[in-house]
Nucleic acid binder design. Structure first.
Length: 664
DNA sequence: GGAAGCGTACTTTTT
DNA sequence: GTACGCTTCC
């Protein structure tokens, strides 16, 4: 567990600005955790230290490692979290300073889309000509880059209306988690100086992925302290689409001329052959700091590339290889990763894994929180926490079915909009007076009354009793199971969907009973936590070993490592991605993506592509990726490249054979 | 006026 | 192939 001289330098240089260029697998996380450990050892109080990362996963991992190095109590007060979690914490204490109510709601992607769609209706913008997703992307890009250039007045208006609408609903979006805290700190120096007094030492992980907004937030949060250590690798910058600026890391020394620069170039993760292959690829990028990673881990195993006929073959070939490895018990499933450029590529692989009964996990993507039943339940929770949450109310107003159809809803919505009221206010008025909105039938009024009763009843139960108990009762009262069984015919899926609701209840219970929690363990706290955790899979059982084969996008794989890595879809249009090539034509970021993917592997790396691929259900021919020709042929085995179909028939036969083996 | 059934358009990457 | 929107049926 020793450190090499460069790592030691990075760990022990505590005062002043430090820039650590940490190549893939060069012990970056170890440097950060040891640095924190070192600071605590020399007597710096934990509460003075702030370490920020980009994902909950890596923040959690660092915390775990630190816990193994010292007693838990020593870590009390240490601010080790993500930018967004820190922002949420600041907003919880100070958001009223910006005129927002204390009980604000954090919108997820779906809510944002719904909001923009509403906006389009009001402003008579055709959502087909301007898809909400595009609009949101440009709003987000604008917030994150803090740029005002190239903005038409039309866009400017839309941007302002969007912010206004958020404000009116007392809601914020993900970018506001950084933007609003920054504003608070800028506009309220007294709050800023509280933080400056408290925190003195700062670290940022994955600095190459920092965008302008985060950088500026960091600046005001940090205050006059120059004890700032940033760790990153320009070759692993893969978030330009989110506004990350490679110049921030490349220009760090300009901002702080006294910066001490440390380079970590020895890779301790991968075999030398893998590193050689990765180096040969990344050298093709024009704008990078010239450097060469090296590894002294010996190996005879070359990188292997296979070209298969279509995406089904691609999946069955890889999975059959994996299956025989698993049968031989040479490697655990969770040490195998299948990496993809896009989420939709995973489907044939999932199918193949299912038919062979191999446990697998699709990391992130569309999972738990995107399931209808989970979203419905969360909408109910949001409605109970805040009845003026129009989006939540809209979702549950007629689910389970109450006979409130779209015409009635439109009538109510129209009234709400014309009088700038919340939908909930309209419901209240309907209950108060029979003369109000005559179009709404008496039968519906009855339903609305009982919904209002339901709301006040459960608001009491949630806030005055045990939350989880209230939730379970709520599911009963709503007859969710009945509603679900009307949608599904198979007993198995009904059970699975109810199980998901049960998981949500378990999460709530876990949250409620966690005594270490810094936030109040109430419904607001839970909902805030939920929206931050959206990307993690709550079904992971704590402490139990996860042996499932991992499927994930390259973006999600950053910072992780596996014994065996497969990178799939090495085709023009997929990697490099087709959309990227429409614009200015630079594929450097795509090349970095492949570089990141390749350097995840410790022992063995496989690359695959398909010759034809189905898109929207239609097959068409695709070209192999240009990146393949950039790889050093002496370390990559291309032997199965372009072999005709009979090879594939043999492979399919072998795959079937493996299937048989499993039966015995 | 509401629910079910059929036709159409779409997938880059994320906190 | 699927999610959503529009049309028809009850």
């Amino acid at each position: 567990m020793q450190l090499n001289p460069s790592q030691r330098l990075a760990v022990e240089t505590i005062e002043g600005p430090v820039l650590v260029f940490a190549g893939a697998g060069s012990g970056k996380t170890r440097v950060i955790t040891h640095r924190i450990f070192h600071m605590l050892q020399i007597g710096i109080p934990a509460s003075q230290i702030v370490a920020l990362s980009f994902t909950n996963k890596s923040a959690g991992e660092m915390r775990e490692r630190l816990k193994k190095m010292m007693p838990k109590e020593k870590l009390r007060g240490l601010e080790l979290s993500t930018f967004h979690a820190l922002g949420l914490k600041i907003l919880r204490s100070h958001i009223t300073k910006l005129g927002y109510g204390e009980k604000f709601v954090l919108l997820n992607a779906q809510d944002q889309e719904a909001l923009v769609l509403d906006l389009c209706k009001i402003k008579k913008i055709d959502p087909k000509a301007f898809p909400p997703k595009e609009i949101l992307r440009s709003i987000s890009f604008r917030k994150n880059t803090q740029s005002q250039t190239n903005v038409t007045s039309e866009q400017e208006n839309l941007f302002e209306d969007y912010q206004k609408e958020l404000r009116q609903r007392n809601s914020i979006d993900f970018d506001d988690l950084i933007l609003l805290p920054k504003r608070i700190l800028v506009e309220h120096p007294e709050i800023a100086s509280d933080y400056h007094y408290r925190h003195r030492y700062f670290m940022v992980d994955e600095f190459q992925d920092t965008n302008r907004l985060q950088y500026e937030f960091l600046k005001v949060f940090r205050g006059p302290s120059k004890n700032l250590c940033v760790v990153g690798d320009d070759d692993q910058s893969i978030y330009a689409f989110r506004g990350s600026e490679i110049d921030l890391i490349l220009g760090f020394e300009k901002e702080f001329p006294e910066t001490k620069v440390v380079r970590l170039l020895e890779n301790y993760r991968s075999t030398s052959l893998i590193i050689q292959a990765a180096n040969s690829l990344i050298q093709n990028n024009k704008t990078r700091r010239p450097k060469e990673l090296y590894s002294s881990i010996p190996s005879q195993e070359k990188v292997e590339y296979f070209e298969l006929s279509d995406e089904k073959e691609e999946a069955s070939f890889a999975i059959s290889q994996i299956q025989s490895l698993l049968i031989k018990n040479e490697v655990k499933g969770n040490e195998i990763a299948l990496l993809f450029r896009t989420n939709f590529q995973t489907r044939p692989f999932e199918e193949e894994l299912r038919t062979r009964n191999i446990p697998y996990k699709v990391v992130g993507g569309y999972q738990f929180f995107d399931r209808k039943e989970v979203r419905d339940c969360i909408a109910y929770l949001r409605f109970i926490a805040n009845p003026k949450d129009d989006l939540a109310l809209l979702r549950i107003l007629n689910y389970p079915k109450r006979g409130i159809g779209s015409t009635s809803i439109q009538t109510m919505l129209k009234f709400a909009r014309e009088n700038s009221l919340h939908l909930y206010d309209v419901l209240l008025r309907l209950a108060e007076s029979v003369d109000f909105l005559k179009e709404i039938k008496p039968k519906l009024r009855g339903e609305i009354n009982s919904l209002l009763d339901f709301h006040s009843d459960f608001q009491k139960r949630f806030f005055h009793g045990k939350m989880t108990l209230a939730f379970r009762e709520m599911i009963q009262v709503l007859q969710m199971e009945k509603a679900i069984s009307e949608e599904e015919s198979e007993e198995k899926t009904i059970k699975a969907r109810m199980y998901n609701i049960g998981e949500l209840a378990n999460m709530m219970n876990y949250f409620e009973e966690d005594l270490e929690m810094e936030v109040r363990p109430d419904l607001f706290g839970f909902l805030g936590r939920l929206s931050l955790l959206m990307e993690d899979d709550p079904r992971e059982e704590e402490g139990k070993e996860d042996r499932r084969v991992q499927l994930l996008t390259i973006h999600q794989s950053k910072g992780l490592e596996y014994d065996i890595v497969w990178v799939h879809g090495l085709e023009e249009g997929i990697l490099p991605n087709g959309r990227v090539m429409e614009g200015d034509g630079t594929v450097d970021e795509e090349r970095r993506l492949l570089y990141v993917a390749m350097t995840r592997s410790r022992r063995k790396l496989y690359l695959t592509s398909a010759r034809t691929r189905r898109r929207f259900g239609v097959s068409s021919e695709v070209e192999p990726s240009r990146f393949l020709s950039e790889l050093d042929r002496s370390v990559v085995d291309f032997s199965l490249w372009g072999k005709p179909a009979k090879e594939e028939a043999a492979l399919a036969f072998l795959a079937d054979l493996e299937k048989w083996k499993l039966c015995f």
